[in-house]
Each structure stands twice: as C-alpha cells, then as structure tokens.
C-alpha cells in the first residue's frame, strides 16, 4: 500500500540541538554523563564542547512526507541503524529530513507483514552529513486493515 511512496522525501527541517533537551534525554536513558550535560566538562573535553548521546536524533523533527499518514499506534520497530561522521554537538543547528527507502510485503505464519524502510539524515549548515539513520518499521495485517478503512 505504500509502494508509491518509495523515493519520496520530506523537506529539510531546521533543528537546534538544545542543551535542555539533551539533558532530559540523557537522564531518560540513565546516562547523564558530564560530557552530555556539563558545560564546563564539555569545554575541557577533546570535543571542546558537549555532545549528544548517539540515539538523541530520535527526538528531532524530520518533517513530513506528503500524503504519508502513519499511525503512531500498532507499529513494530524492527531495526535501527545509526551512522555518524562525527558526534552531534550541543547547541548546533542541523537540518534533518527523511525518505521512504523501501516498502515490501511478506506473508508469514501470523498473516501478512509489511516492512517500511525509512532513512533519515542530519546535515550541518553547509549541507555536510553529520549522521544518517535507517529504520525498519513493521506493519501488521491488523494495523494495515485499519489504515485502509
């Protein structure tokens, strides 16, 4: 049902890696290391500033793909892959976007499953990639039926 969306992208959205948001996130994953949360510690580190935890991009805005309405209920997260060119710095402005990389359906023992592969990207001001992300989302037959109504 999402075959037509393969290759579709969102517009880039500007995100600021906010200090407070990084702190809240680091606390929520039980990792409030001073490299993430202490300004002074960050300055003395080899990065000369604070960095964000590697899964922090979960909290960012990647924009919408036109016409693509995924429910926030009933989806199964199958896989998640991050690749970084460098760490994400607290305070920097980045541009994020998402693309539908692939969509396929498979028959399984518990009915038909649909797989949606999304890629996401974070770029700096000059358009240089900081990180890329690939996400595999599994849609069960029950959820798919609801979507088609």
């Amino acid at each position: 049902m999402f075959h037509d969306f393969i290759g579709k992208k969102s517009e880039k959205v500007k995100n600021v890696i906010e200090r407070g948001a990084v702190k809240k996130f680091a606390e929520a994953i039980g990792d409030p290391h001073p490299l993430f949360v202490s300004e002074e510690y960050g300055k003395k580190s080899r990065f000369k500033q604070n960095i964000a935890p590697p899964t922090f991009p979960r909290a960012l805005d990647y924009g919408e793909i036109e016409g693509m309405n995924l429910p926030n209920k009933g989806l199964i997260h199958g896989e998640q892959i991050y690749h970084y060119e460098r760490p994400l710095f607290v305070g920097e402005e980045i541009y994020c976007s998402t693309e539908i990389k692939n969509y396929y359906e498979r028959k399984g023992s518990s009915g038909e499953l649909s797989f949606l592969v999304l890629t996401r990207r974070g770029e700096d001001n000059d358009g240089k990639t900081i990180f890329t992300e690939e996400q595999v989302v599994i849609i069960t037959e029950a959820v798919k039926k609801e979507l088609m109504v």
Partner: peptide, 27 residues
C-alpha cells in the same frame, strides 16, 4: 529505543578516545 539508548552507555566512559560511528540494532 529506550533500551537502545540505555545500551549505548556501556561506551560513554570511552568518549575521550573514541566516538560511536556505527550503532545498529535489531529489536
């Protein structure tokens, strides 16, 4: 992603020498 976020903290003490370049997980 909560579990994936938690798992990364095994490596946080080593950021003075390294950073996480690739992190891939199957749920």
């Amino acid at each position: 992603m909560w579990t994936m976020g938690n798992l990364a903290k095994l490596f946080t003490p080593y950021y003075e020498d390294y950073f996480i370049q690739d992190y891939s997980i199957r749920f």
